[in-house]
Design a protein around this nucleic acid. Structure first.
Lengths: 236, 236
DNA sequence: CGAAAGGCAATTGCATACACTTTTTGCCTT
DNA sequence: AAGGCAAAAAGTGTATGCAATTGCCTTTCG
């Protein structure tokens, strides 16, 4: 089995597998609770079982798959409680990042944040959800970086990636785009005037609002994936 | 190579390797920056390279080792900045846990916390540092659990484990034991009266104090491990 | 007819073999 | 003598084969 490696991007084989499998989980192509057979994945992607195993290990560390000794791997099933816990953590982490950003961002970082934020206003008017999504991610990443704390950055990004599978349902509530921008605006304003407490509170509220909104779409029994997966909008 | 597996505890082989290598890193037997040769480790522990590789992967995910593609693994080198960042994160996380504990702990949890805390007072009088260390860990773990948020618990425990290698230097400052107990007392008191803000602030201060004290023992060039490893006292 | 025990198929875990990348070393050229 | 290039050695990445554990199915006994 030494044929061409299909369709995937560069990097070591394991990296490709992590991306490939991870994408399929994040995009819901692989459903929570679904069994991940090593041999099947190996033939599916035209590699041997070894990189598949290593990829599953990494995905397990990321929290995307669950692994039990001698019992194989399954797509991680997230209970409603755990999901709420992750959103809650996300809110706290974002609050910390925003607070630190307000206190520590350099002049350049503040300027860049403001410029990007203002630029995204146009996208709201246009209703360009796709593009706004990109700016939204950028915006939050700027907050994480602005905290100037590598470890908090790692924790935050990790938590965000764990929440990624539940950000699929992009059928956003009407008017959410504009509301999101306004919430961002509160955060930016607080950061610009160096008000850490206000920035933190605003960021926490920003995430919490989405979290609550998402709670409406309740958890579905993940062992019956035929019906529908958990629907949670991203925190825009 | 099918001889007996030496000295290590139960669990799958990879688990044993993770513990074995991880312990050697945490205890300083393997120094930061030291190269971890797969073949050497394999023969050293009388297993094949496969479980060694998987163990290194897990340790990498834990942040204990660093891995670069095609260039092997080394014991993670933690810069002074990153160390400070981790302590800072730890303070924030502990603050969150304490705040949530104050708001969410059940009556039973509060009682258990108080009882344990009062019991440890005796250890302070005796100057039993070893035993106090154990209670100290227990105490903090209670706070993490009391937050009733699985994800925050995970983040906190993870961060604590990452800081573990730097908690070795147990030459605690004189009087630190009593001071630590008093700081714990402030936290407990706040929690008992359900004052989340006060509990969070007290917990943050508690960690910060140790963090600042530890900053005195500055980082030593980790590439010259002959001298001395980074000395940081644990947050008692 | 139901339940428990034993065997069989399937799948994971570990070992070994092979391929490719990186690094070192030694020779040749300048 | 110094620098660079090339070849070999060392080490990581991947593939494959074998052993062991698990879960299911069958069979047998109560």
């Amino acid at each position: 089995m030494s044929g061409k490696r299909s369709l995937i991007r560069s990097g070591t084989t394991v990296d490709q597998m992590v991306r490939a499998i991870g994408d399929r989980i994040v995009t819901g192509f692989l459903r929570p609770g679904e069994k991940l057979d090593e041999a099947s994945l190996a033939t599916r992607f035209d590699v041997s079982r070894t990189p598949v195993r290593e990829a599953l290990g990494r995905l397990s560390a990321m929290g995307l798959v669950e692994r039990r000794p001698n019992r194989g791997a399954t797509v991680a099933v997230v209970t409603q409680e755990h999901l709420a816990s992750m959103f809650e953590s996300m809110a706290e982490l974002e609050a910390i990042c925003a607070r630190f950003s307000a206190e520590r961002m350099t002049a350049g970082e503040r300027r860049a944040l403001e410029i990007e934020h203002q630029a995204s206003a146009r996208l709201v008017q246009l209703g360009a959800e796709e593009d706004y999504e990109y700016f939204n991610t950028e915006f939050h990443t700027r907050l994480y970086r602005g905290a100037h704390s590598k470890h908090i950055y790692e924790l935050t990004v990790m938590t965000r990636s764990r929440l990624a599978p539940f950000r699929r349902a992009q059928f956003m509530l009407p008017g959410r785009l504009a509301k999101s921008w306004q919430e961002h605006d509160v955060i930016v304003t607080a950061i610009m005037r160096g008000d850490g407490a206000a920035a933190g509170q605003a960021a926490k509220d920003h995430v919490s609002i989405v979290s609550e909104a998402s709670a409406v779409f309740a958890a579905v029994d993940p062992m019956k994936p035929a019906t529908v997966s958990i629907g949670v909008s991203s925190y825009k």
